[in-house]
Design a protein around this nucleic acid. Structure first.
Lengths: 143, 143
DNA sequence: CTTGCTGCAAACAGTTTGCAGAACT
DNA sequence: AGTTCTGCAAACTGTTTGCAGCAAG
């Protein structure tokens, strides 16, 4: 599955005439090895500790490529940083965000997705993507 | 209803020992007169044209007070600006955001709200607020 | 060899903050 | 009078961009 993703990116790169570079390989490896919702800086620091030469601009630029390639998706939580999560084929999940400990719980709900489709249809709206975030306190933090 | 909101803010201000100032009155007036989802800059420019002396820092500071007072809510859309919308008692709406023309269509759906409550309950999560945004093309823009 | 990619630093946009003076109470 | 609030400008944060050198094809 990690191999598939690499292949996906290589195909994308080929189709766009992009080059395959050491940095892009490294960043892809680290991104794939990462848990959900990395911020650019988190990823950058992780990479830099092993590959000091790398620049943050490259990480920014490369993550945007991953989005274009369909590997990653931008998530804007309320912490002032852009985060990226993995795109899994055919799957969409939403987030419970704990404002106490910053934990993020993912969930999926088909009924909600359907309702969204209905609402969009009612407005003649063509959905490209969506996000649902629920903020509050997780079981541990509601003391 | 606008009067109620002013009263709400005055109560909040009183309870917090905040002062009532010309600027806060002005900003509140303009905020209340505004349509949904003003960005700070939009509001600031509107106010400045009528009250040139006002500073943007004050607008930033005051909008945060409105949030604390329960009059306003931060909305983060994908345009790099923080926007504020009105809090209406007991009402919650979500957004269809057109990436073509930036139109924002609001909708409400009780069933979705219920499903969210269920999901939260299932995770022992205490909801404080939430947001659902659907991105895509509106009827006009889907050519 | 040609062109795209990288790293660096400078530029940017939106927001926050320190401070001296103004304005509430 | 005492303190909070304001306006300004400078500082900050996250992100983008210009450019000279590097590297992939």
């Amino acid at each position: 599955m990690i191999l598939e993703k690499k292949k996906t990116f290589n195909n994308f790169a080929a189709s766009k005439g992009l080059r395959s570079t050491r940095q892009r390989d490294i960043i892809l490896d680290y991104f794939l090895a990462t848990r959900q919702h990395v911020s650019v800086e988190e990823l950058y620091l992780k990479i830099k500790s092993a590959h000091p030469g790398i620049g943050s601009a490259t990480v920014y630029r490369t993550l945007k490529l991953f989005v274009e390639a369909g590997l990653a998706r931008e998530v804007l939580l309320h912490d002032g940083q852009t985060r990226y999560e993995h795109v899994m084929a055919g799957e969409h999940h939403d987030h419970l965000v704990c404002t106490g400990c910053n934990a993020i719980i993912e969930f999926e709900n088909e009924t909600i997705e359907h309702l969204q489709d209905e609402i969009a249809a009612r407005h003649g709206f063509l959905i490209r993507n969506h996000k649902l975030e629920i903020y509050g306190l997780c079981a541990n933090c509601r003391g």
